[in-house]
Amino acid sequence: MRRILLTLLLALFAAPAAAQDTTTAVRPADAIRLAVWRQAEFTGEYPIAPDGTILHPLLSEVRVVGRTREQVREQIRQVLLRYENDPQFVFDYLYRVGVTGEVRLPNLYSLPPETTIGQAVAAAGGVAEFGRLDQVRLMRGGREILLDLRNPSPEVAEMRIRSGDQIRVTRRGASWRDYVGLAAGLVAAVASVVAAVNVVGGGN
């Protein structure tokens, strides 16, 4: 039973091995997601403090920034050994990413490292009515990268988020269809007003 539950925890919390780097790209304001077998007080999502440690009263000595996953794992294990002889746990990082512009729910999001740029846009509710998937701007490391998510290349389709990414979906300009629709709406509105005036005038 214990092995089955641990397997479920791994499936829920652990990122795919292919997406996990040997070095840590996590930064302050990111978070760590931890699941510990039979230790509810350690299980949850905890922000990374400005000094690079975990914001948790029992894990504050665990330094995450600048450490490999194995180093972080061993630090957590040493803390848990104080409470259990053979601690069973899994953890993953959550990167802080901004998704703004023409999306339905612009906000800062905490997302696992395996999240692609397209999935980050989807996490923000997807593209709004006037959004342009073919012109998505990614600010990363002081550089702006223009991405086409409507017809992405294999490299763009598989591009994963990094901590601190700012993703902005641009707004498309008004097309002739928009102007035609606006003109039709105005004509209909004027016609309604004229009809109402005629009705009133006829009543007199």
Rank of each mutant, 00 (worst) to 15 (best):
L147W: 03
E84G: 00
G126N: 03
D51H: 11
A35I: 00
R104A: 10
H56Q: 09
P28Y: 08
V97K: 01
A14L: 12
M159R: 08
P16V: 09
L5G: 00
V136E: 03
V99P: 00
G181E: 15
R177Y: 12
N85T: 13
L105W: 07
A184F: 10
G185M: 12
Q71W: 08
A14G: 10
E70V: 09
S175W: 09
G164R: 06
L5E: 00
F130Q: 13
P154C: 05
T170C: 06
A157W: 03
F42H: 00
A195E: 06
Q88K: 00
Q78T: 12
R162F: 06
S163W: 03
I161K: 01
R3T: 05
G142E: 06
L186F: 13
R67Y: 07
V97M: 01
V190C: 05
L94T: 01
R168D: 09
E84N: 03
A124G: 09
I54C: 05
R73M: 06
T43W: 00
V169F: 05
V72I: 15
E114H: 13
N151I: 08
L34M: 05
V127Y: 07
A17S: 13
P28W: 04
L12G: 07
A195L: 14
A174G: 09
V180D: 13
L146S: 14
G44I: 04
R132G: 02
A184N: 13
R162C: 05
V197W: 11
E41K: 09
R38Q: 10
L147T: 06
P50L: 10
V26R: 07
G185V: 11
L8Q: 08
R171T: 12
Q78E: 13
V79E: 13
Q135W: 11
F130P: 01
R177T: 14
L10N: 12
V90R: 01
Y109F: 15
A196S: 11
T53M: 05
E41F: 02
P112D: 07
A40Y: 00
P50R: 09
A196Y: 11
Y109N: 01
